[in-house]
Design a protein around this nucleic acid. Sequence first.
DNA 1: GAGCAAACGGAACGTTGCTCCGTTAACGAT
DNA 2: ATCGTTAACGGAGCAACGTTCCGTTTGCTC
Lengths: 196, 196
Amino acid sequence: MNESDEGAGHAARSKRADARRNEKTLLDAAAAVFVTSGVEAPVRAIAAKAGVGMGTIYRHFPTRADLIIAVYRHQVEACAEAGPALLATSATPHAALGQWINLFVDFLVTKHGLAAVLQSDNAGFDTLHAYFLDRLVPVCTQLLDAAAGSGEIRSDVEAYELMRGVGNLCIGADSDPRYDPRRLVELLIAGLRRPH
Amino acid sequence: MNESDEGAGHAARSKRADARRNEKTLLDAAAAVFVTSGVEAPVRAIAAKAGVGMGTIYRHFPTRADLIIAVYRHQVEACAEAGPALLATSATPHAALGQWINLFVDFLVTKHGLAAVLQSDNAGFDTLHAYFLDRLVPVCTQLLDAAAGSGEIRSDVEAYELMRGVGNLCIGADSDPRYDPRRLVELLIAGLRRPH
DNA sequence: GAGCAAACGGAACGTTGCTCCGTTAACGAT
DNA sequence: ATCGTTAACGGAGCAACGTTCCGTTTGCTC
């Protein structure tokens, strides 16, 4: 990451003022539209909300995945950073794991359609997929290893499949009041516990 | 339950020969296209495969859900009927439940994209949703009740949420060799076991 | 065979994702 | 302050798809 200075290199020419302004405007507009219409809202709707042309969206965020990542980056980072913190402050590693998974679930279920798009095999979304995996799987691995090391859970479950499973369970949580993913995730985590 | 007769009146005139022929042709074509391109394949592709116009598809199957139901009805019925049979022949109700869930998972993962569409909140798919629920939830309830009655599992889990959870876990199973829904479903079922 | 309703086919329309290019205006140089 | 460069903009245009609509064909009955 050297092409555009973000803080470190000082005097390098920054982007034009209107470009920087539009990027912020777009992020705000996208966040708002995502809340009301979900993360698969039409590009035109986001452009209209921001008061810019569609070319501007695609210039700043070439794929929808880039836009989604930009909108939720802060929250994903926060979730990732909460992992080690929980491990340090919780009574047992298994408790930390449970709480961390809850954070993740809370994040997903409050983002209309994000869970669904997260597992989409659509090629346009693989950078989104990759971002979530890169950022969260290591954290989950750490928690899982700690819990396995303390003998609380079986050790034959990988972080990747657990995360995918949890993500999948969160799909469609909105739009169906009869379905509460939290209960099922809880069941899944309970199933992790070592028999005996 | 053969074809739809108008009930009260005298024997309803059966459909025209070409209509009946086209319906069969369409079912075969749809089944073939579903295998290669998934259940969300373009309508035009199915029409082309069948050698008919698009109007013919929509006349026979007004929504995509109707077509999907028609294609998979036999297998869904077989799965539903396997429930009581398993309960009768298995060692324990919990074993029967596990085997039945396995049947369901096998069915779902072999149908490209069916699991994804099953939970879609898209209004066009709610009859599909309803069909699966009407047909399978009672069976699952029976198995669940039996296992709960024998004290093997906790009794605070409803068939509906379990089925939705299992269905969700099956989403995206194809197109990702690293993800094996069977393992996670197994974990979920394990989590059902009563803590003792 | 004639008449008619059922069934057909595909053109046409609306919605979306994405690209492409003529136009605008920001910014450093003068 | 003005000027020229070019980054950045906007939206028309195209392709793919779902869905409808209606003129045409065809099976069935008499």
